[in-house]
Amino acid sequence: MKLMVYLAGEIHSDWREEIKNQAKELELPLLFKGPMENHERSDHIGEEILGSQPNAIFKDEAASSINNLRTQIWLNKADVVIALFGEQYKQWNTAMDASAAISLGKPLILIRPESLHHALKELSNKAQIVVETPKQALQALSYVFEEN
């Protein structure tokens, strides 16, 4: 059995590569999907498909509609969602994706530092598990595959 894992979170650091590499080392049967990690492409996809927009707000709206399409498709297909909240970046998209996963009944693994406990307490309470590192998230998934 192979699980599809949606990796929700900021696209500015290499945390996804860390998870993918660790999963490969652990020989976990996981397929990873997530948001568009190329920030330029994500910001400009609306104009690429719909044409030039009259201002920055319309440009953002066009891009977000297409990015939301991508996210909805992959979240619906995901078997589990891992959402990373870090300290460096604002995490609005991560919160939106984690909330959508909860609404869809998708198992949610929340990665967040202890310093964000209070800010994320309600979301943490809805997750199946809250961990502090990507390694711990993969250890939890590894347990799913253990035989008796």
Rank of each mutant, 00 (worst) to 15 (best):
Q139I: 13
G86S: 11
N38E: 07
F32R: 00
G105E: 07
V5M: 02
Y89Q: 15
L69T: 04
L120Y: 09
N68E: 11
Q88W: 00
E18N: 02
E132A: 06
L104E: 13
R112E: 01
I66T: 07
L141M: 12
I111N: 04
D60S: 10
S124K: 07
E17Q: 06
E122M: 08
N125V: 00
G34H: 06
R16E: 12
A100E: 14
N21A: 11
N38G: 05
N93Q: 05
E18S: 06
E18R: 09
E87M: 13
L3F: 13
S103K: 12
F32A: 02
I11K: 11
I49W: 05
I82T: 13
H118V: 09
K90P: 11
A63R: 03
L75W: 09
M1F: 03
Q136T: 02
K77C: 09
V144Q: 05
N76G: 15
S52N: 07
P29E: 09
N55H: 10
I66N: 01
D60R: 15
N76S: 15
Y143T: 07
L104P: 06
L108V: 07
P29V: 05
Y89R: 10
I11A: 08
Q128S: 13
E48V: 08
N76Q: 09
I66C: 03
L141K: 09
N93A: 15
P113E: 00
K59F: 02
P35E: 14
V80A: 12
L50D: 04
M1G: 03
L69Q: 10
N38L: 06
S115K: 14
I73S: 13
E147H: 11
L28E: 06
A100I: 09
V130Y: 10
A119V: 00
I73Q: 15
I102H: 13
L116K: 14
N125I: 00
A8G: 10
S142H: 01
N55V: 03
K77F: 01
N55I: 01
L138V: 04
N67P: 00
G46F: 01
Q72C: 13
N68L: 13
A83G: 15
G86A: 08
K33C: 14
G9E: 01
S52Y: 05
L116I: 00
S52Q: 09
E87G: 08
H118Y: 15
A119Y: 07
P107V: 04
L50P: 01
S13W: 10
L69M: 12
S124Q: 08
K2C: 01
Q136I: 00
A127F: 12
M96Q: 08
G34L: 11
Q136M: 06
K121H: 07
A23L: 03
N76Y: 04
N38I: 07
S65F: 08
T71C: 03
A23C: 13
A63C: 07
L104F: 12
R70E: 10
N125Q: 08
E25H: 08
L120F: 07
F145M: 03
G105Q: 04
E132Q: 10
L50R: 01
K24L: 11
V130N: 05
H117C: 05
E147W: 09
L50Y: 03
E48W: 14
A119M: 08
F32P: 09
E122I: 02
Y143I: 11
E18W: 02
K20R: 14
D60I: 03
D60Y: 15
V144P: 01
S124A: 13
A95S: 15
L28P: 14
V81M: 04
Q53K: 10
F58H: 10
I11H: 06
G9T: 00
S52H: 01
R16C: 09
A56D: 05
H117D: 12
